[in-house]
Structure formats: structure tokens, C-alpha cells
């Protein structure tokens, strides 16, 4: 492969593509807000020990189920109140951001890498390989994702790691399908045929020639998967099958707090709000990414 003329649609490397991307992305105000919130949460998560007023597992036995600071029985040291064993909710939420973002990252990486690999193989080779792979994906997709994840976690044993594995597995078929479909449309395009004629090997064709041209929909899907993973992990935590206490994972915190719904609604309110805000921010970004990367919408 000698000339760049063989890959005229290649995106991402030269500066104009990046600035073009930013141009479209920033036109979507929501996306910019989402990005801002996301960066803020990321920042909080990374520097949690700096921002959190207390250690996440520090128990103050004189301050059980304290109300938020602005309420009647609140204390200024515990801005969002305390939970049943006297831990600061704000600090736990800040540390919890680490888990949620980590879950999202791991799940997306696992499912994108494995999904894209399998999808590329299915699409590129076609034939029996394709049929077998797609049938297996059909089987996975025949179950409601949360139910499948729930049973998987029950099999693997409750815990954060297993929850992430289970969610990655149920997310993966979407990437397989997407990657395969992109490959099928790209496979017979001129630039691919040209590279093949030029003597490019299978791996090179798959990863360097075809893959970069399927990136746009994959990125959009990955963003969606990121937020879905956070929601699913929280749901599993809520059902008692995700991260185990005392891990300050938001869904697990919600599950633990559920018994206080009457007496101390704030312990139920804040973890849920944290999940909502994070997921919303990522989805806002996802919309912006789609606008910026999807050429069809660009024109309209």
C-alpha cells in the first residue's frame, strides 16, 4: 500500500477532520453541556480523595441517617446527609463515580474489542463462519439483556467484576452486528479492492483498510453502550447482584438505602440522581457525536 489516494475517506488524522468534527459537535449545545458535566464527573472521580470531605467507608456512629445540610436535622459537615452506618453520602457518591465510570469503560472496552473482532471476522469471511457467528448472536439477543445478565451474574457469583463481564457479554452482539454490517458495505468498495489488488494481507485489509471506515457508527454505539452499562450495573446492584456493599457503587447504595425510603428519602434520592445525571451527560455527548460523525445528518 503506497498511496493515500486509495483511502480517500479516511478520517481522524489530519487536523481539518478534527476541527470539522468539533465544528459539528459544538453546534449541538446539549452535547457541549454533556461533555462539560462528564469532564467534571471524571475530574471528581479521579481526584476523589481531594474533593470528598470524608473517607467513603468512615463510619460516624453518632451521625446515623443524618438529613442533608439544608434540612432541619442536617449538619454542615455532611452536605448530603449520612447513611445507616453514619457514612457521608456526598463522599460515597464522589467515590462512587469512580466505579460507574470504571464500569462503563471496562464494559465498553470489552464489548467493543471482542464485538468488533468477531464482527469483522464474520463480515470479512462470510459463508459458514458468518452464519455460525450470527446464529450465536441471535441466541444471545433472544433473551432480555438484564435477565440474561442477572442469570449470568448468579452463575458467576455476585460482584462488580462478574457484573461487568455479564454486561459486556450481553452488549457484545450489538457491536458484532454493527461491525459486520459495516464490513459488508465496505468490503466490495473500490478502495478495498484496490488495496487487495495491491497485495495487502487479510489482517491489514481488515484492520487498517476497512475498520477505520466503520468507526463512526461504532463510536456512537460505544457511547450508548457506555451509558447503558452504567444503568445495567446499577440495576444489577439494585437487585443485589452487582457490586457488593460496602462498595459505594450507586446502584448498590440505592439497594441498601431502599429500606429507608420512608424515614430518610434522601439516601434514596441522591444515588439515583447521580446515576441519572451521569447517564444523561453521556447520552447528550452521544447525540452530539452522532450529529458530528453521521454524514447523512450533516447534510440535512
Amino acid at each position: 500500500m503506497s498511496t493515500s489516494s486509495a483511502t480517500p475517506e479516511k478520517t481522524g488524522t489530519h487536523p481539518s477532520a478534527l476541527s470539522e468534527f468539533w465544528h459539528y459537535f459544538s453546534r449541538n449545545k446539549g452535547a457541549v453541556i454533556g461533555l462539560g458535566i462528564f469532564v467534571a464527573i471524571l475530574f471528581l472521580a479521579i481526584f476523589a480523595p481531594v474533593f470528598a470531605p470524608h473517607a467513603p467507608s468512615e463510619q460516624n456512629r453518632d451521625a446515623l441517617l443524618l438529613a442533608p445540610a439544608w434540612m432541619e436535622n442536617g449538619k454542615a459537615t455532611y452536605v448530603l446527609g449520612t447513611d445507616a452506618v453514619g457514612r457521608d453520602i456526598l463522599s460515597r457518591l464522589i467515590y462512587g463515580a469512580r466505579f460507574s465510570l470504571f464500569i462503563g469503560l471496562v464494559v465498553v472496552t470489552l464489548s467493543v474489542v471482542s464485538g468488533v473482532l468477531i464482527g469483522l471476522v464474520a463480515g470479512y469471511f462470510g459463508g459458514k463462519v458468518d452464519i455460525v457467528i450470527m446464529r450465536i448472536m441471535d441466541i444471545v439477543l433472544a433473551f432480555p439483556s438484564l435477565l440474561l445478565a442477572l442469570v449470568l451474574v448468579a452463575v458467576l457469583g455476585p460482584g462488580l467484576l462478574n457484573a461487568m463481564i455479564a454486561i459486556s457479554l450481553v452488549n457484545q452482539p450489538h457491536f458484532v452486528r454493527l461491525a459486520r454490517a459495516s464490513v459488508l458495505t465496505e468490503r466490495d468498495k473500490e478502495y478495498v479492492i484496490a488495496s487487495r489488488v495491491a497485495g495487502a494481507g487479510t489482517l491489514r485489509l481488515m484492520f487498517l483498510t476497512i475498520l477505520p471506515n466503520c468507526l463512526a457508527p461504532l463510536i456512537v454505539q460505544a457511547t450508548l453502550a457506555f451509558s447503558a452499562a452504567i444503568l445495567d450495573a446499577a440495576a444489577l446492584g439494585f437487585l443485589g447482584m452487582g457490586a457488593q456493599p460496602p462498595t459505594p457503587e450507586w446502584g448498590t447504595m440505592l439497594a441498601e438505602a431502599r429500606e429507608f425510603i420512608q424515614r430518610a428519602p434522601w439516601v434514596v434520592t441522591f444515588p439515583g440522581l447521580a446515576i441519572l445525571i451521569t447517564v444523561l451527560a453521556i447520552n447528550l455527548m452521544g447525540d452530539g457525536l452522532r450529529d458530528a460523525l453521521d454524514p447523512k445528518l450533516k447534510r440535512s
Binding site: F238, G272, L276, V279
Partner: peptide, 10 residues
Amino acid sequence: SMPIFWWGLL
């Protein structure tokens, strides 16, 4: 973006 288990509780 709603965690519906939380939404239901609310």
C-alpha cells in the same frame, strides 16, 4: 437516561 428502578421509587 432514567434508572427506572429509582424512578419507580420516586
